[in-house]
Each structure stands twice: as structure tokens, then as C-alpha cells.
Amino acid sequence: MNHLGDAHLRTWALRLMALLAADTRDQLAWLGERELETADVVEEAELLCRVSEGLVERGVIEPGDLRQLRLIGRRFGEIDAACRVGLWADALTSDPAWDDIRPLAREFLARTLGDWRQPLPRPVRRYTDDR
């Protein structure tokens, strides 16, 4: 890892994994009143998994972490298109895929950082035209 872009990618990957690894109640609390679409979460995670080989090549993540990201990517790929529709808060409580993804993300974080329990990322504020 040798430039700011790589540091940003590592931070992005770790924050996303922290969110995916969190207990359901913590994920729901993080969401609060936000209406985050399930498809957006899935697409973000799939993107990370797709670029993971390049991240390993550049030293952003360790080669041993690639296997775990491939497992996570495979599980996301199995999520039915119908289950990608709607709010993530609803999917977290109704789709068992999230219960399968959680331990995979935890293993990734435990391997990478020594403990899967990480602070959740600060939620991004919704853009409004109000000034």
C-alpha cells in the first residue's frame, strides 16, 4: 500500500465488513430512520469482492484474505434478485442470507484486524436541497 487511494480502499473495505459483521440489532440501530436499499448494500459488497484480487496485488489486503472475500462474494451472488428489492432493514430481519454473510465478514475482520468487533462507520448524511 503506497498511496492515499489504497489507504482509502482499505478503509472502505474494513468499514463495509464491519457493517456486515455487526449483530442485526446493531445494523438496524445504525440504519435508524435511513431507507437504505438492499440492492445498494449488495452492489457495494459485490464490488469489493470483484476488485479484491487487485487489492491483494497492490498490498491493500493480505493474500490470505482473498479466500474469505471470495466466499463472501459467492454468498452475495446467491442472493435472489427478488430478495435484493426493498429496504435493507426489512431484508436483515427476513432473509437468512444476512445470517450467512455475518460470520464470513466476522472471520475476515478477525483475520485482518484481530477482532471482528469494530466500530460501525459513521452513516453518510442524506443529501437534501435544504440549505
Rank of each mutant, 00 (worst) to 15 (best):
Q27F: 11
R125V: 13
A97N: 14
A45Y: 03
C49Y: 00
D40K: 13
F76Y: 09
D90F: 15
R84E: 14
W12S: 02
T24S: 08
N2D: 06
E44H: 11
E46W: 11
W12E: 06
W30Q: 06
L36V: 12
W12N: 03
L55K: 00
F108R: 00
E44F: 10
A110I: 00
V85P: 08
W98F: 07
T112W: 12
L31F: 06
G77P: 03
G73C: 02
G114R: 06
N2C: 03
C83D: 15
L71M: 05
E43N: 15
R117I: 13
P96I: 04
Q68A: 04
F76C: 01
L28D: 14
G64I: 05
R70T: 05
A91Q: 14
A81K: 10
G32M: 02
L120D: 02
L28C: 14
R106L: 01
G64P: 04
L69K: 02
R75K: 14
F76G: 03
R50I: 01
Q27P: 11
G32I: 03
D90S: 14
L28A: 14
L9A: 12
F108E: 00
L104A: 12
A13E: 01
L87Y: 12
A39T: 09
P123I: 03
P96T: 12
L16W: 12
V42I: 13
L36I: 12
E62N: 04
A13W: 02
D100G: 07
M17H: 07
L47V: 03
E44I: 12
V60W: 06
L28H: 15
S94V: 02
R126G: 00
V42Y: 12
V60E: 02
W88A: 07
E46C: 10
V60T: 08
A105T: 06
P63T: 04
A97H: 15
I72K: 01
E35S: 10
L16T: 12
T112E: 04
E62Y: 09
R50F: 05
A81S: 11
E57M: 07
L47A: 10
D95P: 01
E46H: 07
V51Y: 09
L109S: 03
T11C: 09
A45R: 08
L66P: 09
D23M: 06
D80T: 08
L48S: 00
R25V: 11
L66S: 03
E43P: 05
A110R: 05
L9M: 13
R102G: 02
V56E: 04
D115N: 12
W30L: 10
G86T: 06
R74W: 08
P96R: 14
